[in-house]
């Protein structure tokens, strides 16, 4: 479970996040939706501990990310905006490195890697250097890397960016599988259909504040629009005008 309580963050004079609060439950897929520059990535980066909150609190399974960053990171798997694989290491080595860094080792690690290679269908290119990977292959390996230590919570920053239809579908299936296994999945997107197809609950963020939240159906009702995209435009538009 990831709890975000009244989060604020500024970069110099720019207030990127201005008081965001939400909770992502276990066994739920929570979508963070918003236009470019809304503060989605900043929020996710604070949750994944690479940025420090200006004020407010983030708890991962009850552990504060600021006071006990290392313990919080143990419970987190993060897929950042860029996959950030090491081009000279193979897929397997990339995954193994993160396993070791997160305290998994020996036979347990080897077994876990094999499971992930199968789950994510990486087998074919597991022992090739990451340099020549396609975007889809990179995302898969980065995801395996994020999950290697078996974290309860997964934070995915625009995971379907640059993926083709087939790869996107496979990824959606995987995210549902993770949900069924009881994981807490928090992911960001600026694509409405994507969020609508996957999420149990949606948090819509614009200009650094939450403008709406609820289930896909709830949001349709709230705005009186049958099309979610129209609902989105309406919600974000009112915020921009305000």
């Amino acid at each position: 479970m990831i709890e975000v309580i009244d989060l604020k963050k500024s970069f110099g004079p720019v207030q990127a996040v201005r008081g965001v609060s939400f909770t992502a439950q276990d066994g739920h897929i929570t979508g963070l939706l918003g236009p470019n520059g809304a503060g989605k990535s900043t929020t996710l980066r604070i949750i994944s501990t690479v940025l420090k909150p200006g004020s407010g609190t983030v708890k991962v399974d009850g552990v504060d990310v600021v006071s006990d960053g290392n313990a919080a990171r143990m419970g987190l798997g993060v897929l950042p905006h860029q996959s950030g694989l090491y081009p000279r290491l193979t897929a397997r080595e990339n995954i193994r490195y993160y396993g070791e860094l997160n305290g998994v080792s020996g036979a347990a690690l080897a077994q876990r890697i094999d499971e992930l290679l199968e789950l994510l269908e990486i087998g074919d290119f597991a022992d090739r250097p990451a340099k020549g990977f396609s975007q889809g292959q990179k995302i898969k390996v980065a995801l395996a890397r994020a999950m290697v230590h078996g974290p309860k919570n997964l934070v995915l920053d625009e995971p379907t960016n640059g993926l083709d239809v087939m790869a996107t579908r496979a990824l959606r299936a995987l995210i549902r599988k993770l949900k069924d296994a009881g994981h807490c999945v928090l992911f960001s997107s600026h694509v409405m259909q994507e969020v609508a197809a996957l999420c149990d609950s949606i948090v819509i963020i614009a200009g650094g504040v939450i403008v709406a939240r609820g289930t896909p159906d709830g949001l349709r009702k709230q705005t009186g629009e049958s099309d979610l995209e129209e609902a989105f435009v309406k919600l974000v538009g009112t915020e921009a005008a305000a």
């Binding site: 690479v50 990171r73 950042p80 950030g84 694989l85 090491y86 993160y98 980065a142 890397r145 230590h149």
Partner: peptide
Amino acid sequence: SLEPLLTTA
């Protein structure tokens, strides 16, 4: 690759 690296424990 630095950002994901910093999210490890």
